[in-house]
Each structure stands twice: as structure tokens, then as C-alpha cells.
Design a protein around this nucleic acid. Structure first.
Lengths: 199, 199
DNA sequence: GATCGAGTAAACTGCAGAGTGTAATTTAGG
DNA sequence: CCTAAATTACACTCTGCAGTTTACTCGATC
């Protein structure tokens, strides 16, 4: 581990904090270097501009979201248990303080640029994982889903409405127990609509 | 109607556009006055500072949300029809282009300040209206709701997941027909969980 | 027709921030 | 110990922006 690598980390940590507090336009490179305990010149040796530093952080963010574990549908397991596992594919990000700090910053900053926003949203939400799961379960007869995209939005929407947006706005992280309840109630509501046993 | 009042409108319209595109820190008073086709001094005659202009816009925003019609529970009407009416209390804001433009800006700008964010969220979401409705319906026996706050979050969450957040991020307004579908499916899912007829 | 409220244009102040140049110093590692 | 790369301090340029000042123009109202 170079000293270089260490400095780089310091810079990124400081930049995340600064961008999160002030936003892109409000952040100052002087303050970032001061927070990182590094000379301003070193910041520019690592990142050629404020923009480049910001983009580097977005990439780290996307990486972290994509390292999240995926869930695949398995016909032999009870559908309710599997939906709860699926919920945790999103849920465990919600309890990760680093991820949520970044999420907060990214949501605020990317919203101004619709293209970037849509791109980041897709990367963060990993909608495909959820849609494929629900599709497989429907094909297997474990769920009865007339509109796949809508069902996916509803499942994720129920979780996010309780576990993501309130956190983004309040800054207070959800506890493991709270996320457990959120996922359970989401699953039950989802099954109330899409279970094949339903009248 | 004064000329003054007209100028004021021009300034506000220009400021909304500028703040939305650049954020508070990135917005420039010079550009705002240019966009408004008004001298910079006139801007300062109407609003004493950039901050004051921004706050004035937030107030307008909150006003508009609060002018939205309220829905009260009526025992004699079928619960499904009433829930659909309730959904429209949120839904008709989703199809209002001016409101959604403002919402986009406000969400992005207030997110950095948790206190301001929570305050605006409350004003915009008017959660109380929804909770009171659901509470009244439950008291009447038309719904069976074990956790009032959770049920309220779920109802609003289902609508927003499909009709608010996608619009905030993509910038493309939902059509009346789309919102109709969103409200109907939300209502059915909600009844699947909370209807007293449910096993 | 003098006055007054509102608007305008443009130059100006003061400051903060992005990014650079440089010479001196530290550090890693053979 | 020596070298090359990385880091540092700091002065410097340039730009843009918030907010002010001044001298001027309308148009209405008394």
C-alpha cells in the first residue's frame, strides 16, 4: 500500500463529506484539501479537476451498489421466504451507513441532470434483478403477475417508501429490525395481490 | 394588475428555471435577471437577496401543495371508490407540470438540510390528510388496519413509487391515464391487504 | 408641469474559488 | 547513501458572482 493510495483515500473521504454537505457547486477544493489534510496540489495530482473528482466518487458508488448480492428464484423453496430474501437484496443496502451517505449525496446532485439521474438510478436500483426474479416466479406459477414492470415497481416502491426515502430525507439510518418489518409487510402485501391462491 | 406584479412573476419564473437547472449555489442573479428580461436592480428591489428569492419560491410551492383538495371519509360510499378519490388527492398534483417542476427543484435543493427537507416533505406530502382518512375508514369498519402509520406510508409509497419519483428523475410528466392506472392498482393492492373481508 | 414611484443600464467593489507554477522537502526503495 | 517520484507551501492568475451605486428614463397622478 503506497502512501499515494492512502492520500487518495483521504481525498475521496473528504470530498464525499464536502460534496454531501455543500453539493457540487457549493463544494470548495480548498476545503476538500484541508479536510483531507493534504495539499491542494496533491488533490490536483490525483484528480485533474473538481468534475473528475466528483465522477470518481460516482463510480465508487455504483460499484458498491453492484457488489450487492443477487437473488435467483428457486422453485423448491416457499415463495414467501424467497420474496423476503429478495427484499433483503435491497434491504441490506438500506442499513449500510456508507452507502446511504453516498446515496443521499448522489440523489441530490444527479437530479439536476435527467440523463445522469436515470443512469445512476438504474445502477443503484438494480431493477433487473428484481424483475427477473418475479418473472421466474410467475413462470413457475408461484405468482400470478399480469404486469411485470408494475409489480416490480410496486415491490421496490413499498420498500423504498418506508426504508429509503425517509432515510434520504431524515438522514437517520433504519435499524435491522425496522427493515425486517418493512420487508415482511411488503411481502405480505405483495402476496395479497399476486399470490395465485388469491380469488 | 400592476406592471410591478408582472415583473415579479417574470422574476419568479426565471428564478425557478435557473434554480432548477443549476441549484441554489450554482444559480446566478445576473442570469436570473437576464432570463426575466428585467434589470438586476429590479430583482433586488423585489427580493432583498438570493436567499430571500429562494425562500419566496419555497413558500409558493408549499401554498400550491396545500391548495390541493382534501378528501374526507364518508361512511355511505363504497370504500374502493373513496380510496380512488383519496389517491387523486395526490394524483392530480402529479399531472400538474408547474408543481412537478417545482417539486424537482425543491427535492434536490432541500435534501442537504435535513430539517428543511423534513419540513418541506411534510408540507408537500400532506400525510395527515391520508392518515385521517384511513383512520376514519378503519373506525367505521371499512378497513382493518393494525398499523395506521405503516398503512399510510404504503398507500402513498405505492403511488409515489410509480408516479412521483420516476417523474422527478426523468422529468417526463405522467399522463392522466397513467395516473388513473396507478391509483387503481394501488387501491386494489391496498384492499388486498386491509379489506376486512380478507381471510 | 412638477413630482414620485418604478424600472433600466452599466460600471464598480469585494471576495471566494478553480486551477497553475515552482522551488523546496519528504519518502520509498534499491 | 542516493535517486526519483510524490508531496508540500504558497504565491499567483483569472473568472464569476453577490450586492451596490449612480445617472438616467418613463409614465402616472396630483
Amino acid at each position: 500500500m503506497d502512501i499515494t493510495e492512502g492520500k487518495r483515500r483521504q481525498i475521496i473521504d473528504a470530498a464525499v463529506a464536502e460534496f454531501r454537505e455543500k453539493g457540487f457547486a457549493g463544494a470548495s477544493m480548498d476545503r476538500i484539501s484541508a479536510r483531507a489534510d493534504v495539499s491542494k496540489r496533491t488533490v490536483y495530482n490525483h484528480f485533474s479537476s473538481k468534475e473528475a473528482l466528483f465522477r470518481a466518487i460516482l463510480d465508487i458508488m455504483a460499484d458498491r451498489a453492484n457488489r450487492a448480492f443477487d437473488v435467483v428464484y428457486v422453485p423448491s423453496k416457499p415463495i414467501r421466504d424467497q420474496l423476503i430474501d429478495l427484499g433483503w437484496a435491497e434491504g441490506h443496502l438500506l442499513t449500510d451507513p456508507d452507502f446511504m451517505k453516498l446515496a443521499r449525496m448522489v440523489v441530490g446532485e444527479t437530479m439536476r441532470d435527467p440523463v445522469l439521474a436515470a443512469e445512476m438510478n438504474e445502477k443503484m436500483a438494480r431493477i433487473a434483478v428484481f424483475r427477473e426474479f418475479i418473472e421466474a416466479a410467475a413462470a413457475d406459477g408461484a405468482l400470478k403477475v399480469p404486469d411485470l414492470d408494475r409489480a416490480t415497481d410496486q415491490f421496490l416502491g413499498l420498500i423504498k417508501a418506508q426504508g429509503f426515502w425517509p432515510v434520504v430525507f431524515s438522514g437517520e439510518l433504519a435499524t435491522h429490525a425496522q427493515v425486517t418489518r418493512i420487508i415482511e409487510t411488503t411481502t405480505d402485501m405483495f402476496l395479497g395481490m399476486y399470490s395465485p391462491d388469491h380469488a
